[in-house]
């Protein structure tokens, strides 16, 4: 069966449909879809300085490449790359090498901030004296630095490589754990313009599956030998992911349905939780938080002892 749109050999069957596309038609389809998401949800405004959260993995690399490409003709929009070096030997050092070369080649300014410099120790060291789930502390530190550093870089938006798979997992996880309030902060664009302490977040790959993104990365030659984080990943999320993938294989379209249904109720959720919690500023670092001291400062003090900022 040839490509539906031309006569070339197909390289992919689109998820949730019988449409087969060849390399060029797929690349066009993919870029159009990202562009459509940006347009429909107003992800990019005039004079935006978009900081792209990069890991050297395929999602954020594709995101960086496309944001750069799609804003090429817009002289008022600036794109900068931001990466967090958690300090994971054999994993992040490799992916950051890849990212550094990629940014050089594509002429993007790259800023790397490390846990070691910002919190006193690399993650590998931190975990020696921390008994909880690695991803909890790692996630807190990363989210913290992403928010803080993108503001310091004078960005007004933070773009992340979250895709349809990530988002549908988060939605279901929040349901299963009765954390629906957290879902009010999902969606293709988050944050309130009025609160300058939070950088607005945008997710241009929102409607694309992991499989589509990997295919795109492969066809564009952005594939490194991607490895996995050696620390026990979030096993709850992994179980939800496997469950959704099994459902998807049996009932194609499941993940798209989760997202579409969610987007219908998202405005209601946002309205409901809009001023439920007063947002304070951390007494130590001034970053936004719900208690007196933010989670990152708490962890830094408990786990990374003898470190003063």
């Amino acid at each position: 069966m040839a490509c539906k749109k031309c006569v070339e050999n197909p390289v992919i069957q689109l998820p949730n449909s019988n449409v087969n596309l060849c390399k060029n038609c797929f690349i066009k389809y993919f870029e159009k879809k990202v562009n459509k998401t940006i347009g429909e949800y107003d992800l990019i405004d005039k004079k935006d300085h978009i900081v792209v959260a990069c890991s050297g993995g395929k999602d954020s690399t594709v995101l960086l490449y496309l944001l750069k490409k799609l804003t090429e003709k817009r002289k008022d929009v600036k794109i900068t790359a931001l990466a967090i070096d958690e300090g994971i030997k054999g994993y992040r050092d490799k992916s950051l090498d890849f990212l550094t070369n990629f940014c050089k080649e594509h002429k993007v300014e790259l800023n790397i901030f490390s846990y070691e410099k910002e919190f006193g120790k690399p993650l590998d060291e931190i975990l020696k004296s921390y008994n909880g789930v690695p991803c909890s502390i790692c996630g807190v530190f990363r989210r913290y630095l992403l928010n803080k550093k993108s503001k310091e870089l004078n960005g007004n938006k933070l773009a992340t490589g979250h895709n349809l798979d990530d988002e549908s997992q988060s939605i279901i996880m929040n349901y299963f754990r009765k954390n629906i309030k957290l879902s009010a902060r999902l969606g293709p664009i988050t944050g309130i313009i009025a609160d300058k302490r939070f950088i607005r977040r945008i997710k241009p790959l929102y409607f694309l599956t992991e499989k589509e993104i990997t295919s795109y990365a492969f066809l564009k030659g952005f594939m490194d030998k991607f490895t996995e984080c050696p620390h026990d990943a979030d096993s709850y999320r992994a179980q939800i992911r496997d469950m959704l993938n099994n459902f998807e294989a049996k009932y194609p379209g499941t993940k798209h349905s989760i997202i579409t249904s969610f987007l219908e109720i998202l405005p209601v959720l946002k309205e409901k939780y809009k001023d439920e919690q007063e947002i304070k500023s951390c007494k130590i670092c001034d970053e936004p938080c719900s208690q007196e001291i933010c989670k990152a400062c708490q962890y830094a003090e408990e786990v990374v002892k003898n470190f003063t900022r």
């Binding site: 069957q13 087969n20 599956t209 499989k211 990997t214 492969f218 066809l219 990943a233």
Partner: peptide, 25 residues
């Protein structure tokens, strides 16, 4: 080393690779 779809016919001397799409971390 060329991307193919699921219904693609393959021959015995083809080199087939399955690349994971799941991002780690």
């Amino acid at each position: 080393n060329e991307l193919i779809t699921e219904n693609t016919k393959i021959n015995d001397n083809d080199e087939v690779k399955l690349i994971s799409v799941i991002s780690g971390g």
